[in-house]
């Protein structure tokens, strides 16, 4: 019975380390996989795109604000 228990215990230890190792490996694998690629796309497509372009009018002339105060 004792030896049986010992073997069971050894198996438990082995399982523990196997699962821990798999977990660590999985951790690093997951980190490399960019999940955000999947998530954001659905959200963004619903937003209405702004079909306006902001462009300075090339014929306009800019100036400096007058040096002294306005107030």
């Amino acid at each position: 019975m004792n030896i049986q228990k010992l073997f069971v215990k050894k198996l438990e230890r082995k399982d523990f380390f196997i699962s821990a190792g798999v977990g660590l490996v999985g951790l690093f694998v997951m980190r490399m996989f960019p999940f955000n690629l999947l998530l954001n796309r659905k959200h963004k497509s619903k937003e209405k795109p702004l079909r306006a372009t902001v462009r300075i009018n090339p014929l306009a002339i800019s100036r400096n604000k007058l040096g002294d105060n306005n107030g």
């Binding site: 699962s19 977990g23 660590l24 999985g26 951790l27 690093f28 694998v29 997951m30 980190r31 996989f33 999940f35 955000n36 998530l39």
Partner: peptide, 16 residues
Amino acid sequence: ALVSASAALAAAGCSD
């Protein structure tokens, strides 16, 4: 135990 451990590790693994 396995399920919760893997969930925890997966959560630690993925990052936004």
